[in-house]
Design a protein around this nucleic acid. Structure first.
Lengths: 211, 211
DNA sequence: GTCTATACGATGATAGAC
DNA sequence: GTCTATCATCGTATAGAC
């Protein structure tokens, strides 16, 4: 009798191996081997390898996006009440801070951020689209909120800047555990909370820059 | 008789397939098949699959880094002559603009930027280290130059911000060709030159932000 | 419902004859 | 250098035990 149920064991193993080796380089046999379950269990519980990938994304993203969305709406609500524009730093904070907190708390979350980093640069639609469609709704909300906070910035410029932000954030999250550039002349890495604070500061400044 | 020599055909095919499918998911057979050369030719010309990857990186990075370094030294030289601090926007421009120009000009450069994007998030040292060691010298020079331009920023903060910059830049370069988020509510993408200008503006602002 | 054992067809790696 | 026979491994499907 396993302590953890089969579905979870498969998800944990898949998350780890997809992050470490990439989706296409990871075989179902490697996953079921690590999870100590039968090969066919993947097909039984998830239907296919693609569906398993989607389940790996959903398990983490659904609760995380819920938190981010709640925070975002809270920021917007407060601003509306006070009849002022929301602050960029608060909007961005509602997006970045839960991500960081989540990454620190849950075991396997580090693997997950690596997987997200991979998905962001993946040209193959199997992996990329699977991730993109889960974050797009929230991303559009954030985009609209930032447009509200920065009405003087043209929409297409703001959108480009949001892409830069996504890149900075994704890269930071998925390389947080590792040494930044493993070579001499590099200072020891800062603690994750400090990095998050610096990142929010950095991207806020970039988003608000005069055109 | 081929119009292009065997080594180049292998490099072109490897660059394309490594970018599209990832290093580990690309077989030598796929490469030699696309290049229309014999399977053994890879081992003859490059020695191994790993060495081929390194050659793919070097072919693009050596000339590109040379240009970036020349530009960087030119910016530093001008500042020294005028006895003023170099401007962040010029330093960052010397790093980003040649990359963009190169990406636009050379065929296959788009594949290459995708490959770089992959290398930046790759946990496996085979791919990652191979790339990192080729960009580190220039990266350290840029880091030192920015420290000169921004003496009021503590070194460890500047270093974190440089990592954010690397993330924003890497992500931008490797997703330039694709639609940013392929869903409704998204505006048509801007031309690459405009994106580069916005990116330089964005990261400069982020780097210079008050602590 | 859950899980296991096993099989299938496809694809790719490997090594030895030519 | 090339071709080919052989073998390993892939994702998926199915039959049946608990």
């Amino acid at each position: 009798m396993p302590q953890i149920d089969t579905k979870t064991r498969i998800l944990d193993a898949a998350e780890h191996l997809f992050a470490r080796d990439g989706f296409h380089s990871t075989s179902l046999r490697a996953i079921t081997g690590q999870a100590q379950v039968n090969l066919a269990a993947v097909n039984y519980h998830f239907g296919s390898k693609d569906a398993l990938l989607q389940a790996v994304f959903e398990r983490r993203l659904h609760p995380l996006n819920q938190i981010r969305q709640d925070l975002l709406e809270q920021v917007l609500h407060t601003a509306r009440q006070q009849n002022i524009r929301p602050r960029v730093i608060d909007l961005i904070g509602s997006f970045i801070e839960p991500t960081l907190a989540f990454r620190q708390s849950e075991s396997g979350a580090q693997d997950f951020t690596t997987l997200v980093g991979r998905a962001l640069v993946e040209p193959d639609p199997t992996v990329r689209d699977c991730f993109i469609k889960l974050v797009t709704p929230l991303f559009l909300q954030l985009s609209a909120a930032l447009q509200l906070a920065l009405p003087q910035i043209p929409a297409e410029i703001l959108q480009a800047r949001l892409q830069f932000t996504l890149g900075a954030m994704g890269h930071t999250m998925c390389t947080l555990g590792r040494p930044p550039l493993e070579l001499p002349g590099i200072l020891p890495p800062l603690p994750a909370e400090k990095i998050a604070e610096l990142l929010i500061n950095y991207v806020s400044s970039g988003l608000e820059a005069p055109c």
